[in-house]
Write a protein that binds this DNA or RNA. Sequence first.
RNA 1: GCCGACGUAGCUCAGCUGGUAGAGCAGCGGUUUCGUAAACCGCAGGUCACGGGUUCGAAUCCCGUCGUCGGCUCCA
Length: 692
Amino acid sequence: MQPAPASSASINNCQTRPTRQSSLSFRAESRNLLLTVNEERKSLEQRAQMTDVERLRHSAAHVLATAILKIWPEAQFAAGPPVENGFYYDVDLSHRISPEDFDKIEAEMKKEIKANHSFERMEVSRDEALAMANRGELGALSARSEPSKYKLDIIENIPADEKISLYRNGEFVDLCAGPHAKRTGDIGAFRLTNVASAYYKGDEKNPQLQRIYGTAFKTKKELDDYFAMLEEAKKRDHRKLGRELELFVFDDDVGPGLPMFLPRGAVVAEELEKLAKETEFAAGYQRVRTPHIARESLYKKSGHLPYYAESMFPPMSIVEEGKRREHMELVIDRAKLQHELETGQWSDSQAGDQFDAWEEREKIDSKIDQLSDRYYLKAMNCPHHHKLFAALPRSYRDLPLRLAEYGTDYRYEKSGELFGLMRVRSLQMNDAHIYMTPEQFEAEFNAVNEMYLNYFKLFGIDKYLMRFSTHDPAGLGQKFVDEPELWKQTEEMTRRVLKDSGINYVEVANEAAFYGPKIDVQVWSVIGREFTIATNQVDFAQPRRLNLVYKDRDNKEKTPLCIHRAPLGTHERFIGFLIEHYAGNFPLWLAPEQVRILSIGDEPELLRYARAIHTELRANQVRAEIDESTDKINGKIQRAEQMKVHTMLVIGKRDMDANAVSIRVHGKGNLGAKPRGEVIADLLSAIKERRA
RNA sequence: GCCGACGUAGCUCAGCUGGUAGAGCAGCGGUUUCGUAAACCGCAGGUCACGGGUUCGAAUCCCGUCGUCGGCUCCA
C-alpha cells in the first residue's frame, strides 16, 4: 500500500501495509537537525522533464520564497517543488504564517513578477555550494548570520557525480536543479491556497516546517477555471451531500470512521449489492458467508499478522470458563512480581536476582498467553475464504472456484487518515476469491477485467487507469514473500494479459502485495477527481501457507493460484465516489427515492387516485413515496427537488379525469402528462435495465 | 500518530474587546385547496462538543480530552 493522500488511498483486499516512511532513516548527529536519507533519488534527467506549467509553478515557488524573505529575512527554506495542482515551499520560520498573511505575501510576489526578473542558472562546485550555504546565501536574498541549514543537508545528499546548480531571480538565489520558466513575468496568474505543516523530508523525526501551498497558471482564465472546479467539487462533496440527502451519518458514540447508513443510503448500498450479485452469478461465482472475527491462529497461518497487525483493531482476549481461576492466579502472581521489579532496590550484587525475576515474569506471561484465546476483527476476507476452499476436498474439476461475499471488515486506520466515507474503519467489500490452476489464470484474469470495464460503462466512468504493482527483488523475504520464481511467473502472466487486452495500465515497481502482484484501479469522477476504487490481486503465497490443495488429473496434490478482486471496492468508498460523480443525482435504478407523487390539493377523490398509483408502484417494488403535506404544489416540488427525488409525478384534477399523470424529472423539469399505464411501464423498464 | 484550524438548535449560520443565547429552514399545531423550485399564523427546540481552571460573572480567556477538517517528499 503506497502512502497516498486520503482521497486516493487504495483499497486492499488484504496485504502488507508499509508505514508512511518506507525509507531507511538514521540520525545525523553532526548537526542539531535530525536528518534522514532516502534510498532513492530522482536523476537530474528525470527531474528536467517538466511540463511548461510545472516549470512555471516551480518558478512560482521561488517567487514565493523571495516574497517571504522580503517580509521575514531569517526564513530558512527546504524544498519547493511543483505539485499536481500547484506548488509549495517548505519554510522554517518562527512566525506562524496564517492565511491572513497571504495578502501581504502575494503583494510581494506580484512585485517580483512585475519586475520580470530572469531565472539565471549557475553551476557551482560542491565546495562553493557548501560555502554559500554556510554563509546563509542559499534560499536567501543575501548572506545571513545563520547558515542555510536545509540546503546544506540537501547538498550533502547530492551524489558526488551530480552537478550542482543554483538559480537566481532578482536578489533571490537558491540551490535548485531546475528547470524554470524564463522570467518571473511568465507566471501569468497565481494564488496562495493554504498552509499546512510538514516534516522535513516527510519524516516525523525531522523538524516540522510550514508548507505554504499555492497554485499558478499561464493565464488568469485557467486559474479561475481551476477555482471554479474546486467550487463544484465542494458542492459535490460526499460529506455535504451525504448529510443533505440523508444518506449516512457518523456519531461520536459509535466512533470515528464508523459510518452508519440511513435508509436512503442503505438503498444505494443494497442496489449495488444486487448488481454485484447478479453480475457475479452470471459469471459463475458462488456466494459464501463468513463471520466478522477469527482466532489469531488464522492470521498467523495466513501470514497477515506480522505484516498487517498495525492495521487491525487490537485483539480481544478470551479466557474459557474452566481456565479462569488458573488465569486469575497467574495474573495476580504477575502483578506481585511486577510490583517487586518496579519498587525493589536492585543493587549490583542482586543483578542475578533481578534477572531471575524478569525470567519468571516472562514465564508467567507465556502461561497467561496459553490460557487465553485471542480473536481479531477481520480486516480482510481472504483467510476465511481460503478456509472455505479447504473445507471440502477439491478436484481440478472444481476449478476455477469463485467464492464471493460482500464481506464486512474492520481496519484500524490512523485517526489522521480518516476522511468521510473515503477512509473509514468499518467497510463492506465487493470481495471474491478465485481459485484456479495456472493454465486457467489468463481466462479468469481477463474475465475479471472485463467485469471491471462493464461496470465502468454502467456508471459512466470514462477515464480509468490500472496501476500494476510489481515486486522489487530487493524486498524478497521482507516486504514480499520469498518466492522469486513465482513472482516472475505471475508478474509475466499479468503483464501479458494486460497488454493483450488493451487495458489502460501503468506499471509501478515495488508496490505489490506481500503475496503477489496487484492492480489498483483508479477512476476519475466526471469532475476529474481521482479515486482509487478497486483492487485486483494475484496471490500465490496464502494458498500455500494455508495448505490449500486440489487433486489434479495426474492424481497429485497441487496448490491453486488465487485472484483477489473487488471491482466495486467497498460500499463506503464507492458510494462516496458515486455521490460526487453524480452530484447526488443518482440514476433511477440507484435513486434512494425513485418516485414521489405530488397531488395538487387534497380533495378526497384526487387523493384516492394518487394513492392508487402509489400503491401500484410499490407493489412493483418501486421506491415511491407520496407527499400528502398541506404545502402548495410549488412547495412540494421544491422539497422533492431539494432531496433530488428522481421522478415526480404531479397529479391534479386534470390528470385524474384523463387517467394520466404529469411527469417531472429532477434536473429536467416538467415533461408533460402521459397515460398512467404508460408512465408506470416506462419506469419499470428503466429500472430493470438500469438505464441512466 | 504528528502539526495547525475548527466545534453554538436536526441543518446553515449570527452572537464585538467576558455581563440573562438569536435568526432562517426543518419539526409540531392550526388556517389555506394551491398546475411545476418555498402559502400564512402560532408553538416548541440549546449543559454553546466534553471535563477542569481563571473570574463577582465564561459560548467568549487558559489547560486537558474527544471529534471534524487541512496537511504530513509529487525531494535541491
